[in-house]
Simulated scan of single mutants.
Amino acid sequence: MKRSGPLYTLYAGLALAVIMLSLNATTGEKGSSYAGAPAATTSPSLSPSLSPSASKERPSPGPSRTVRHGKTSYAGRTDDDVAAVSVSVRGQKAIAYYCDGRTKESWLKGDVEDDGSMKLTGKDGATLAGTLADDRIRGTVRVHDGPQDFTAKKAVKGSGLYRATAEVRGAKIDGGWIVLPDGRQVGIVRKDGAPSAAPSVDPETGAVTVDGEQLTARPVVP
């Protein structure tokens, strides 16, 4: 009976050891399961707007803009008041007429740049260089002689550039007129190439009488 006490103590110790081993095993399994599970990772999706390649891209330049000038005529005189100059513009094209109202004239044509500048050329080396800005053309014209500066203002109703070509009694007629904003007219009519001062033209109808024949002068456009 005296030996039962130590045995009970031994049995109790063994039982306690088994319980502790069981707890450790259970805890170890749970811990390994938690620690060993791969952490959930999410691969960040890059928005197209934030992608490295997109951030380095630069917008490609659009097509160059072309300025289209409306259909308009300009008329004025040279600074020395010797001759008149008229320029008719439509889009990127221009036709000009230089005339002193007696014997000297020249028709010129060329392109109008986006900035309003123009370089027109005609027969026998005639040139006109000007710039369209603020409803007027300011430039220099050269016809036969030295250069002449001029200013041509935007034409008002009835003013501008007119031309008539026809055959009258077997003769070839070619006439050009510049009607200035103040109503004055400057023109030359060539009959088989021979120049003379042009008779007045009606700006409203374009009617003009040459050698007894009524002709129609029409506005000049490029």
Rank of each mutant, 00 (worst) to 15 (best):
K157F: 07
P203V: 05
A133L: 11
G139F: 00
G160R: 01
E167Q: 12
G122M: 04
G101L: 10
T205R: 08
A171L: 09
Q148L: 12
I178L: 08
A96H: 01
A194L: 09
Q92F: 08
I173L: 07
D135P: 03
I178T: 14
V189G: 02
R138V: 15
D111N: 15
D124C: 01
K119G: 11
D115P: 13
G175Q: 01
A94W: 00
D124Y: 09
E204K: 15
K172Q: 12
L128F: 07
V201I: 15
R184A: 14
K109R: 14
V143T: 08
Y97F: 15
D111F: 14
G130F: 05
A194Y: 07
G146Y: 08
C99T: 15
L132K: 08
A133F: 07
V189A: 04
G116P: 09
R142S: 14
R184E: 15
P203W: 01
R169Q: 12
T140F: 03
D134T: 11
G176A: 11
K154V: 11
G206T: 06
T103Q: 07
Y97I: 05
V89N: 02
H144A: 10
G101N: 13
K153Q: 08
A155I: 02
G125R: 07
L132Y: 10
R142N: 13
E113Y: 13
D202P: 05
D202G: 05
